[in-house]
Design a binder for these strands. Sequence first.
DNA 1: TTCTAATCTAATCAG
DNA 2: CTGATTAGATTAGT
Lengths: 239, 239
Amino acid sequence: MMASTSLCAANPAAAQNLRKGSAFAENKTTQCSFSIESILGLEQKKDGIAAVKPHRPWMDACTNLVLGDDSNPRLQIPVVSYENSLFHANSNPLQEEKVLKCEKYFSVTERLSFKRELSWYRGRRPRTAFTRSQIEVLENVFKMNSYPGIDIREELARKLDLDEDRIQVIKFSLRYGMPEVIYEMGAVKFLLKNKVFFGGIDEAFVTIWFQNRRAKLKRSHRESQFLMVKNNFTSSLLE
Amino acid sequence: MMASTSLCAANPAAAQNLRKGSAFAENKTTQCSFSIESILGLEQKKDGIAAVKPHRPWMDACTNLVLGDDSNPRLQIPVVSYENSLFHANSNPLQEEKVLKCEKYFSVTERLSFKRELSWYRGRRPRTAFTRSQIEVLENVFKMNSYPGIDIREELARKLDLDEDRIQVIKFSLRYGMPEVIYEMGAVKFLLKNKVFFGGIDEAFVTIWFQNRRAKLKRSHRESQFLMVKNNFTSSLLE
DNA sequence: TTCTAATCTAATCAG
DNA sequence: CTGATTAGATTAGT
């Protein structure tokens, strides 16, 4: 029940379409039951071929809840209780408790987790704050190659640990036929949910950064072109 | 030198634009030096406001190399030597060697790494093959919510370890003021470059999966709509 | 071949 | 200003 609530909170609008889109079976229409799904907007959005609404599908769930008051973002995507919400099969509560308890000792993770725990907004990944040196490295690579492949991206992600408080590295070796974890200088900086970062960032972050950087380049390019045209125009007027 | 080669291989085409896009300084045009950058296509693509070529920017580097023979994909993005190519500062060769040596003991990673090492294609991440059970879980969530937020995505990523060979879990606890790594049943399944997966997959993979799944849903929806219209048309002809 | 994971752009949201 | 997300189109691996 909690699981259902959580899963449907961030705007679903797919189950109906899935059933509808399968074949000509248009007879089985919406059943009009006031379930949690319907309350949270599951039976909404029956978009035709061309949806009219512009681009913010994650806002649709809100429209059913706040009834048109689109200006208050606090009511968007109000996931009630997220803890252990998705699947209870294959989950060991003892393990999860330990992991959660452990997270309290990592200040960076703690702040992130805490922020996300208390925040009304639960849809989007918390904005990553790259450091100056990380940006510098990324920019240097971008100057040479604005379309890095997977290898360069992963190498970048691995090497992007240039903070002043340098991140410790965990290495893996194999002894007695088992992987043994060795930690040096004792700290793990990023313990983000289900991964440990080895003093690097996620490759996906690098991908996103380069996408945004290319967009920025294109933007500035367009802008300079516009200025150039304007300049030519004004100078032609003066002649 | 190797670093430069590697970085520019996967189609750059940005340094010039960066310099050009900064201001009205259009005087400093391409210097026509036959450097590695120019050979690999760095001084190409001078796209205006609206680029004519449709959409495959990673192909542009190839045009300089194969001179129009666009049909042979083996010549695209030929990164010569990738090992330690990006930055040599802040890298401990001993550490890297250990990590690399360690990777040999993980068959999954080994196969992936080996494939990527030998493959001519180095631009794209190797296609992930989700298991049947993973797809099942993703589909079940998708039925309820096709726009999962970061929390659901990360929970999904964490829980998507439903393979038959179940993944062991590494947990962190804190003793003696230091994070101590405890491993249970001794195996780490995914050691992918710089992260250890705790029996899950990357959240980015979940994001991508949902994006593609939504596109597929929309596609099938469009298709069914078309069939419906066609059906109505033919039946109206018969009446 | 079909299906779909990965990548891209463009627009937009949001910290 | 820029990191994150989406739609939509496309590429390419199985």
